[in-house]
Each structure stands twice: as C-alpha cells, then as structure tokens.
Amino acid sequence: MSATRTRILQILREKGEATAIELAARLDLRTVTIRHHLRALRADGLVREVRPLRNGRGRPRMVFTLTEAANRLFPRNYEGLVRHLLPLTVSPDKIREVACRMSQEAHLHGRIGRDRLSAAVAFLNEKGYLARLEASEDGSIRVEIRNCPYLEVAREREELCALDAALIEELFGAPAERFSCIVHGDPACRYRIRSEVA
C-alpha cells in the first residue's frame, strides 16, 4: 500500500472521519489526488462514505471513515490479553468449555465420517493451524498441525496445548492422543484420533 494511502488510513483512525478536503490539507496534497486515493481505498473495502457534509453553496462534501476491514490493519495486543486472561481459565472444565464453544463455530452438527473430518480440518485451517489428515497403518486417523497460532503464549502457558487437544476432540468427535508438540520442539503437533470417527 502506498505511503499516502497508509497516512489517509492513519488520519481517519485518529480523527474518526474526514472529508477529502480535510485530508488534503493534512497531507499537503491536492484534493483531486486525495479523491483518487479514497476511490482506491473504497474499492479495497478500507474506507466508506458516512454522510454528505453541507457547507454553504456547491456540492456537499462527502465524509469518509474506516471500515472494519481497515480497523483490523492496526496493531492489536491479543497476545498480551491472552497472557493475562489465561490464568483465570486453567481448570480442565473451563478448557473443555472453551473448546466446545470454539468447535461450535465449525458447524459440524450432523456431519459424520469423511465429511466431518474434511470440515474439521477446513475449520482448523481457517483459524491458521495449517492442519492436514494422515491415514495410518493401524487404521487410526492422524491430524498434523504445522502452525501454532499462539506459539509464543503457549510456550509460557501450556494450558493452551490442553485447549488444542480438547478442541481436536470436540471437532473430530472422538478421543485424541497427542504424540508430538511444537511447543516441545517437534516440527508439528500430531494427534491420533480413534478410527471410529472415519
């Protein structure tokens, strides 16, 4: 993204809303140039028109603000929040409760067999896990996870590994045994799922 568009987003983040004329004055650019950038940002879904601003004669000026997609571009501190909240939710019952709520987002109710397996893996991948299924010779299903979406926090608080294990069980609808773990230095987290799920 160009430096000018980045600055437009920053100004809108600070002010909440602004017209092209106000942005041009802040950036010391021509209004026509700012309008060009606003059109591009609007096409990218990062800004939207809020309302027209009438100020005397002539065409009303349009007021712009950020969209939710643009808000997600700015720094967040979820990791810090998790570090402070996690000690409050370390009991096994709470971990299972959180895993159950998370798994409900996958909409797996009524899905069975390979359909459930595929949907569960797709859900994990939407959440950034880089998951895949492997069949093993003993008939069990193995789930391999190549990315821990919260690795830095999990290194400090291994309860997150218990949360992942509970989530795997909820998603696949069967007991899961973890036999390798990224937090312990393995290249992937691997789980063995009881074969009845397939």
Rank of each mutant, 00 (worst) to 15 (best):
S2I: 05
T4H: 10
T4Y: 05
R7M: 11
L9A: 01
L9R: 01
Q10I: 06
Q10S: 14
L12Q: 03
L12R: 06
R13D: 00
R13N: 13
E17M: 11
A18E: 00
T19Y: 02
E22W: 03
L23N: 11
A25K: 07
A25R: 15
D28Q: 13
L29V: 04
L29S: 05
V32C: 06
I34D: 02
I34H: 04
H36D: 15
R39V: 05
R39M: 13
R42M: 15
L46V: 02
R48F: 15
V50W: 04
V50S: 01
R51A: 02
R51D: 06
L53M: 09
R54P: 02
P60F: 11
R61C: 11
F64W: 15
T65Y: 00
T67N: 02
E68H: 04
A69W: 03
A70P: 00
N71P: 01
N71Y: 10
L73I: 00
P75Q: 07
N77S: 13
N77W: 07
N77D: 06
Y78F: 14
Y78M: 11
G80K: 06
G80P: 03
L81F: 12
R83K: 14
H84V: 12
L85I: 15
V90W: 09
K94M: 12
A99C: 08
A99L: 07
C100T: 09
R101A: 02
R101Q: 02
M102G: 05
S103N: 04
A106T: 04
H107G: 03
G113R: 12
R114S: 12
R116Y: 10
R116A: 05
L117P: 02
A119L: 13
A119E: 05
A119F: 08
A120G: 04
A122S: 05
A122Q: 06
E126G: 00
E126S: 00
K127T: 02
K127M: 10
K127V: 11
Y129R: 06
L130V: 08
R132M: 13
L133H: 09
E134K: 15
A135C: 08
S136D: 06
S136H: 09
E137F: 03
E137V: 08
D138L: 10
S140V: 07
S140Y: 15
R142H: 14
R146K: 11
P149R: 11
Y150D: 10
L151R: 14
E152V: 13
E152L: 13
E156V: 03
R157N: 11
L160N: 10
L160S: 13
L160D: 10
C161F: 09
L163A: 11
D164Y: 12
D164A: 10
A165S: 14
A166S: 04
E170F: 07
E170S: 11
E170A: 09
E170T: 03
F172G: 07
F172M: 11
P175M: 12
A176V: 03
E177P: 01
E177R: 14
R178A: 03
R178I: 04
F179S: 04
C181S: 09
C181W: 15
I182N: 08
I182C: 03
H184D: 15
D186F: 14
R190S: 06
R192M: 03
R192E: 07
I193T: 01
S195C: 05
E196F: 14
A198T: 05
A198V: 13
A198H: 02
